[in-house]
Design a protein around this nucleic acid. Structure first.
Ligand code: ZN
Ligand code: ZN
Ligand code: ZN
Ligand code: ZN
Lengths: 163, 163
DNA sequence: TCCATGACGCTATAGTATTACAATAGTGGT
DNA sequence: ACCACTATTGTAATACTATAGCGTCATGGA
């Protein structure tokens, strides 16, 4: 049993919050966004997003696969990877390269270039949008004539809760 | 056979340069640095660094392994990974997370937090040290109380030579 | 109806990385 | 020179991450 509290899951800014809202908000947004853009928010894709949303941590594709299996879904690798590709492609999730893992986007409403803060101890991941990235890196890029298409910015360390 | 020109290999700043100097400089530095710090710059480690230095591109561990095999070295995965771990650990090389690949450090003399510019078309990789990283990210980190230990900053796009 | 597209089921395989343990080589103190 | 200690290497096995390929089905437009 062990009914799980709906509150207190740490991040957004490493602060406790009502996480149920997080989930509902993200799922609702994804649904509407897909509708508006003629994309198919299928059962598998929704379930994968929900799985990602259960925690503010990055999950490996095979963790997701395990969860899908428990939920009675098909569970060959392509199932997870295809759904993840879709979610990442359309901005509902991100890949954390450092961890070879995936995380739900924390503010999918905005077009953004995310920066991730990863806690080495509790594995929580916080997504931020410091306009620094486009600003600071943009300047360097302009100097050498580099055309930026995508950035990976991942900071590893210790979060405030673990210090 | 096939004497290869010592010049013109693109990067440092995506500019043509005498690449032979690149290699010699890096190897010499690594040797001296290890000597000074009581580290063993063994044959395998040197060879792996040299292999990485042949191009300003990131190489996969198994590419390196193939090269080692041709050179008559042992070629099981741990051979490459151990050498790479050593080189990365001591700042002679870096891992490009986005590519699951490794590249020789371009300025191992300085203590640094590198940023990589990766060209999608020619695969060349340029390492820069914009103090932006520590500056911009540092500010965000301070705001939320995050202790930065390591950063991954990788920019993907099109380099000036490919535009 | 015919066709093109996109999603999914399923199998196999490719690519990346680590564990584990034995053997060997380098280091420093006696 | 000898020993004890540590670091490095040899080797096999395995774990983890990701993609290719192809057949099926549903949808939607020509
Ligand atoms: Zn939440
Ligand atoms: Zn996001
Ligand atoms: Zn060079
Ligand atoms: Zn470097």
């Amino acid at each position: 049993m062990a009914a799980q509290s709906a509150k207190s899951v740490a991040p957004p800014g490493f602060k406790s919050h009502n996480h149920k809202h997080c989930i509902e908000r993200a799922v609702t947004h994804a649904k509407q966004s897909c509708q508006a853009n003629g994309l198919q928010f299928t059962a598998i894709r929704q379930r994968v997003l929900e799985i990602l949303l259960t925690q503010h941590k990055a999950m490996g594709a095979y963790d997701i696969l395990d969860q899908l299996k428990e939920d009675g879904f098909n569970s060959q690798p392509p199932v997870a990877y295809r759904a993840l590709d879709f979610l990442v492609q359309h901005g509902f999730a991100h890949k954390i390269e450092r961890l070879n893992a995936f995380i739900a986007c924390h503010s999918p409403e905005n077009d953004h270039t995310p920066t991730f803060f990863i806690c080495r101890l509790c594995s929580s991941v916080v997504e931020t949008q410091p306009e620094l990235t486009r600003g600071a890196l943009g300047k360097t890029a302009k100097d050498v004539g580099f055309l930026i298409e995508q950035t990976v910015v991942e900071v590893e360390g210790v979060c405030p809760n673990c210090r």
